[in-house]
Design a protein around this nucleic acid. Structure first.
Lengths: 148, 148
DNA sequence: CGTCAGTAGTTGCGATGTCAACTATTGTTG
DNA sequence: CAACAATAGTTGACATCGCAACTACTGACG
């Protein structure tokens, strides 16, 4: 039914590769993170950003913009992380509308442990399947999608 | 707070590239598909598989295995597509447990139109940002993730 | 043949995420 | 400085998806 077996343009396999690689690796790695550290990738992602931030704090706004979530999505994510004791909401000095999200000591500890294991999982599911030259090529070709 | 600015192994930028490329391109392209053709990427994906299948029919099982959905997810997806008149459930001759999903004429028409536009969107958001050599490298490096 | 493990698909329930509307606060402008 | 647009974040209603339990049917084995 295809218009003779080859509809796809030249770049299509490259797109499919990106799509499937991310989906397959994520679905392999996320359950393990959940199992080992009891958190989702979204949690780890936010923990990481706070961990790397000055004083371990960021505004909701900043968290949201650097992530793949919407504002309301970030609100709910932080709700859950706060309920789990990993972050704390604080007020922003000088702007009573804003909210500052601060990582707790428990959040920091969990982040360190979870990230270490997570990197091992990623190593196995993704990194080890490509050569160093391939990693270099991927990084260069695709950096434009996150580098701003 | 990072253990001095560089925790990440060498392959990390390559992974981040894959992750962000897929997320950013999807979130750019999906709303446009929705707007132009009124369907989600999941719909288009299933339509495509049926369109390319002999007689435009596949079993639930086959649809599910070739996709990124679970069995229950595929049940619900097909529910919605059937409600929209794009596919029809039929019985499998010789196995009364099974369900055959058949694309309708309306589904075929929609697929043709939606895919054409979708490829243009992908072209713009993904393909045009890389050189042919880069596409070739990506395709070769990442084909292992979908090529079964 | 009758029993019973295995397979196909659906469904209830809960988790997660979006959109649009809302509240509260800030900033701008005549 | 009063009025009003803009910004920060939250909330309610809803869509989507996975897991585990369920139904129905098939096939293998004694």
């Amino acid at each position: 039914m295809t218009n003779d077996g080859r509809v796809d343009p030249l770049w299509f396999d490259s797109w499919r590769g990106v799509l499937f690689a991310s989906a397959r690796v994520l679905s392999a790695v996320e359950p393990r993170l959940q199992e080992h550290s009891g958190i989702s990738l979204a949690f780890l992602d936010v923990l990481g950003r706070l961990y790397d931030a000055p004083e371990g704090k960021l505004r909701m706004q900043e968290l949201q913009q650097r992530s793949l979530f919407t504002r309301s999505g970030m609100t709910r994510l932080v709700d859950r992380m706060e309920a789990a004791g990993l972050v704390r909401r604080e007020s922003v000095p000088g702007d009573r509308r804003g909210v500052l999200v601060a990582i707790t000591p428990e959040g920091s500890r969990l982040h360190e442990e979870a990230l270490a294991r997570h990197l091992l999982d990623l190593e196995q599911e993704f990194a080890s399947r490509l050569t160093p030259a391939q990693h270099k090529a991927l990084a260069e070709a695709l950096s434009q999608f996150w580098h701003e």
